[in-house]
Design a protein around this nucleic acid. Structure first.
Length: 515
RNA sequence: GCCAGGGUAGCUCAGCGGUAGAGCAGCAUCUUCAUAAGGUGACGGUCGAGAGUCCGAUCCUCUCCCCUGGCACCA
């Protein structure tokens, strides 16, 4: 049986439309999933809607829409975005799904309760009636008022809630993370979590009164006056989406997650709270947590008040999904904040996609059209001896495969695809060096050899970029009559299939028209 | 304030003890198979500031300045 690979993207808050940061994370999750599929593994990629938070209720009220309809509409926008981006999510689990998610959420609760880790305690805090939220003194202005409602005094409110015994799992968590049994990637985030775990851990509140929750969310088992609080509930979507609490066989097949893809802002919930819940419930822990950084926009943080929120759907409509995917994946390190600018994006599009890949394919196909009737020529030697595979002075596509593989192990996603573009540059240079336009008159055999190697390389490039730029990869493969090959879960490291001489080449429209 | 990471060519970044590197942009030049695309070359940097260690520091140590993140029940 094929190895399985299960990964998740964070489930977005659905109180507003998706922005470009969501697009980045979806693409990162998708490319990892696609690469593992390419390795022949059975993969599953999940995300969904974080719908049970109080903020959704408030946002729905403000919009004057019934809450369920509000979250349904907003969640759909995120799902639409994933499709526009060419991301293949196998599961899209909604938090408000009473058939699958509610039982899962309650099951996790019951398991933790059975372990003796849930108890009742009175929670006391400063409550802003305007925001309907509790605040810490540090979150307030100098008058002790919240920033949304200055002049409004906060009330000291106490409420009976259920608490989770987080403190009990402190030392276990330190050990698991230190020994990389729960990998936190990259190291800076791992160290951050470990330093957080050096302080004494407080137990956390995991329920809210119906009143405060506005009767929205998953009811606490055995207590119909309380709802399960969002974090205890939301993280569990990673399990409820694959059968936890409603299809044990499916759940056993996929759980634990091989990696959770998340943004840096929610590291603690994933690296501390979530594994603690699972330890308490006696369930296996995720193997890794991949923490990516954020986009700034033209040097500034993205925010609604600044009005610089970028709509990814608009960009896709204008430029297509693959160019955006390329920009995200090749031009940013997942481990440092990157600045998104449309001008820079256009530069990259022209330099790397139009002048780079697009032009290489175009000139190679042009040579085949003019000299070999638009067909793949037959080489007079063993393809494995071709300089584009073996020349030590060339950054070959074989080298690129190694770099791609390494990049998915380290999660430095940009280095693998960067290596493909290094090869691409050398292929361009190879054409200039060989001067095929001269060979066509004096040495047709040599020309066939040169061109075969180039077409062979383009075929490999299509294979290599398939996880990153699926649409483009298929376009190239179709043009070379090898799209079935591409979809066939090839074994990438030790073997590959040579292209067949005589195959008709039909490129059609250019891959990336210049902007 | 404390802890961690970073400040290197116009832009994005690599290098981390031995006369500063890449890609992109700009400039020059060669070439024509190609999407006015491709190749080559030159230009371009007191490697955040100051002090110290060393024969020698972008790289080690100290101080300072600036940026980013974390410092919990906030999603």
């Amino acid at each position: 049986m094929a190895k399985k690979f299960y990964l998740t993207c964070a489930i977005p808050y659905v109180n507003a439309a998706p922005h470009i940061g969501h697009a980045l994370e979806f693409v990162q999750g998708d490319v990892i999933a696609r690469y593992h599929a390419l390795l022949g593994e059975e993969t599953r990629l999940l995300s969904g809607g974080d719908e049970n938070a109080l903020k959704n209720v408030q946002a729905a009220e403000k919009a004057g829409v019934p809450i369920q309809q509000f979250v349904d509409d907003n969640t759909q926008k995120f799902l639409d975005l994933t499709k526009a981006l060419g991301c293949r999510f196998d599961v899209w689990q909604k938090g408000s799904d009473q058939v699958h998610h509610f039982p899962a959420s309650q099951k996790l609760w019951k398991l933790c309760a059975k372990a003796g880790d849930i108890y009742q305690k009175s929670y006391e805090g400063l409550y802003c009636v305007g925001c309907e939220t509790f605040y810490e003194p540090s979150e307030l202005n100098e008058n002790g008022e919240c920033f949304e409602h200055p002049g409004k005094k906060l009330e000291n409110v106490s409420e009976n809630n259920y608490f989770f015994r987080l403190s009990k799992y402190q030392s276990q968590l330190v050990e698991l993370i230190t020994k990389d049994q729960l990998r936190v990637i990259p190291d800076t985030r791992k160290n951050e979590v470990l330093s957080f775990l050096k302080q004494p851990l407080q137990d956390i509140s995991i329920s809210r009164s119906n009143e405060r929750a506005k009767n929205w969310g998953v009811p606490v088992p055995g207590d119909d006056t309380q709802r399960i609080y969002v974090w205890f509930d939301a993280l569990n979507i990673y399990q409820s989406g694959i059968g936890f609490g409603w299809n044990e066989e499916m759940y056993k097949k996929w759980w634990p997650a091989d990696v959770h893809v998340i943004g840096k802002g929610i590291t603690r919930f994933h690296a501390v709270y979530w594994p603690a819940f699972l330890l308490s419930a006696g369930l296996p822990l995720p193997r890794a947590i991949f923490v990516h950084e954020y986009f700034t926009v033209n040097g500034q943080k993205m925010s609604k008040t600044l009005g610089n929120v970028i709509d990814p759907v608009k960009l896709i409509d204008t430029y297509g999904a693959d160019p955006l995917r390329y920009y995200f994946l090749a031009k940013f390190s997942p481990f440092s904040d990157g600045d998104f600018s449309e001008d820079e994006f256009k530069k990259v599009y022209n330099a790397d996609l139009a002048n780079g890949l697009g032009n290489l394919v175009s000139r190679t196909f042009g040579l085949a059209a003019q000299n070999f009737g638009g067909k793949i020529p037959a080489p007079d030697r063993d393809p494995d001896a071709h300089p584009l595979r073996t020349d030590p002075a060339i950054h070959t596509w074989k080298t690129a495969w190694k770099d791609i593989d390494a990049s998915f192990r380290s999660y430095e996603l940009n280095t693998g695809i960067g290596s493909v573009w290094k090869f691409l540059k050398d292929a361009d240079k190879y054409i200039n060096d060989q001067k095929p336009w001269e060979l066509s008159k004096k040495d047709p055999k040599a020309l066939a050899w040169v061109l075969y190697g180039l077409l062979d390389s383009i075929h490999q490039i299509a294979w290599q970029i398939y996880p990153y730029l699926p649409e483009t990869a298929l376009h190239i493969a179709r043009a070379m009559g090898s799209e079935k090959l591409l979809l066939k879960n090839p074994v990438v490291k030790d073997g590959w299939t040579n292209i067949a001489p005589g195959t008709k080449l039909t490129l059609g429209k250019p891959l990336f028209p210049r902007l």
